[in-house]
Amino acid sequence: MQRFWLNYIHLSAIVILEFRQWLGMLVSLTVALNLGLVFTFSFISGSRDPALGMYVVPGAAIMSLVTLGVSMVASDLAQQRRTGAIQYYAALPISKAAYVLAMVTANGVAALPGLIITVVAGAWLYDLPFVFNPIVLIVIPLSAISLAGLGACIGLGIKNWRVVGLVAQLTMFFIMFFAPVMIPPSRLPGILQLTGWLLPPTYAARAFRAALAPGITAEALMDIGILAAFAIGSLVLVSRTLEWRLE
């Protein structure tokens, strides 16, 4: 077990250090995308109604995790498979689960600046009375793991790396405009309300919304529970899907 955690720490450090030279650009682009979403929704609705902000701002913040978790993890894994880098790790005496968890952690850490800036700017724009709720410390890692798990499934499940990029982009687009992440469920057609319940970003946005308000509701706890199930499920699934053997 000690070896697992040592592997995890070293592999997380490796992935974070690999981000280093791109981190500025990565954070800038994520922040620009999220702030763009926050402002665009305000422009389209012609309103800075706090009720709208309570949907748009947590949703946009979660999009930081979606961008890095779904898109980056998917393309990273596809590229590592393509270049043979994954084979290099496979030949080292390391835990597969530690490798997956390290990728998730690194992407979650890289998403944090974008997430925080989006919340602060959104709170100012929509005049939201956000408070710090400690459950946010659980919601963010669980959201990061479940979203990165979704990205890893795309990156490992699709053989062609170009198709991986395309599917990751489509997934982001779907989450942004066709899932109850930034848009209240009541505004979506019935079928999309239904598919929304199958996607981890829905619960991530709901739990994050609850985490930015005072108190802990039963609904929030249920969302966190479902998010935890998604997180554990995706870790197990990805660890099994990640083929350490080559066939």
Partner: peptide, 11 residues
């Protein structure tokens, strides 16, 4: 030592 790329190239 693999013939092609190894990992950690951005480190």
């Amino acid at each position: 030592l693999p013939q092609t790329a190894f990992a950690m190239r951005d480190l």
